[in-house]
Amino acid sequence: MSYLVNRLLSMMLTLFLISVITFTVTNILPGDVAMMIMGTQSNPEALAGLRQSLGLNDPLIVQYGRWIGGMLTGDWGNSLVFKEPIAPLLLQKMKASALIVLFSMSIALVCAVPLGVWAAVHANRWQDTAASSASLVGVSLPDFFWGIMLILLFARGLGWLPSSGFIDPADDIWGAMRHALLPSLALGLGLMAHLTRMTRATMTGILNQEFIRVARAKGLDEGTVVWRYGLANAVGPVMTVAGLQVGYLFGSIIVIESLFNFTGMGWLTYQALLNRDIPLIQASVFVIAAVVMLANLIVDLLYVAVDPRIRLS
C-alpha cells in the first residue's frame, strides 16, 4: 500500500517537473501568441495591447501559474490553428492514437516473445543467427521507411489496404481497422525487432541460471523448463522494456501519422509544431509526456503482480 502511495506521490512530482520543462521550452520561442494571432505585419500598438490583455508582459512565473491553473481546471485554452478548445480536441485525437499504439504493441509482443525465446533456446545456432540478423535489420530501418514500403506493397502494389486517413471505430469498425492496420504495422515492425532482441537477451540470461538446471535435474521436459520456468521469469523484464517503448512509440507516431494522414495525437502535434501553435504545443507535449509516464507506472504496478519479490520491499 505504501508502495502505491509513494509511487503516486512521485508521479505528482514528475508531472509537476514535466509541466515546468514543457512551459520553459515552449517559452523560448522567438514569436509569441500575440504575433501568431495578429500576424507579423500587424500594427505594433495593437500588438502591444493584445500582449497586455493576454498577460504576456507578466513575469514568466505568473504566466506559468496561470497556465498550470488552467490545465488543472480543464481550461486548456484555444488552438490558434484549429480555432477550437484544446481539451476536447486532444481527447479525440488521443483516442485515435491509442488505437494504433495498442494495436502495434500487441502485434509486436505476440510475435517478438516467441521469436526471442526460440532464438535464445537455440543460442549461437542457425535459428538464433537467422532471428537475430532479421531483428538487427528490423531495428536499423527508420519507421517511415517501413511505412513507405508498406504503402508501396499493400496500398499501391496489391491495393488491399488504404494508405491514408482515419476512420472512427464508433462509425465503422471494419473501416477503422483497415485504416489502422498499415500505420500499426509500420510502428510495430521496428518495435517487434527491438522486443525480439530484448527477449532473446533476457531469456539467454535466464536459461543460464541455476534454477533452470535444477528444473532439468528434476526430470521436467524441455518445454516446461523453457516455456514455464524460463518464460515466467522473463515476463517482468520484457514488460518493462515494452513499457519503455511506449515513449518511443509516441515519438514515432508523429512521423507515421503524418505519413499516413492518420489524424491522431502525433499528427496534431506535428501540425502544432509546424504552425507554432504555442498553446497546442504546450498541451500536447504535456499530455504525451504524462501518458508515457502513466504507461510506465502501469508497467511497474504490473511488475509487482508478476514478480513476488517486489511485494515485500
Partner: peptide, 24 residues
C-alpha cells in the same frame, strides 16, 4: 536523476522536434 527521469518521460523524437521547432 529526478531531472533526468523527467526528461526521459518525453519521447526523444518529440523533444528533438519541439526544440528544433522552437529554435527554428
Amino acid at each position: 536523476m529526478r531531472l533526468v527521469d523527467t526528461l526521459l518521460s518525453f519521447p526523444a523524437l518529440l523533444l528533438a522536434l519541439t526544440i528544433s521547432a522552437v529554435l527554428g
